[in-house]
Amino acid sequence: MTVRHSLLGLLAQQPRYGYELRAAFTALAGGSDNWNVTPAQIYTTLNRMLESGLVEIEPSDNGSTSEKRKFHITPAGLEEFNRWLLTDVRDEPQQDAFYLKLMLSRHLDFVDTSRLIQIQRNGLYRDLHRITQAREKLDQRTDLARIMIMDKAIMHLEADLRWLDMVESRLDEVVKQPPPEVCLRPRGRPQKNSPGSDRQ
């Protein structure tokens, strides 16, 4: 959805060709290493937005492929973009893949939980190192916008690392916690004679 609305935003600035839109999105998102969108993604998105009337093709420029067609935004598209723009952005910090690994590993005897923490930490440090190195090469005067997004990534990685340190320091207690309570209430109408049928 973010790509879709960003394309709308780029079209709100000015009409653009399909190939221009991909290049403009890539530049906006901080380079293809940072956020790679394929031409197919762009053109599928553009075609869907055409169908829903959010964008239109310039009448003078009706080429055969999306790449060569020039798009402009419609009033409906502008409204949709504005609605998206004015909605706050949330991520889901409590849906954490590493947390699941950690919790699963507690009750598996072949996994060394503290090793999981080390592996995760190594990965985070490598990311932090890579971004720090890339950030060092940028010029504070001309690349400030890109430095800002790198700073965001660095700060999040720092927070993840601090959290890992905290988990590690309390790992003995965490490992001893009882497994989470599982609710096994069957969904829908209970089947007759099934073992769970007498439950509420």
């Binding site: 072949f110 996994v111 060394d112 080390q118 890579r130």
Partner: peptide, 18 residues
């Protein structure tokens, strides 16, 4: 020393236990 990491290479995996 509990861990020693090179920033440019992959972490060794604990394959034996698996």
């Amino acid at each position: 020393i509990v861990d020693d990491t090179l920033m440019s290479s992959d972490a060794p995996e604990n394959a034996r236990r698996l």
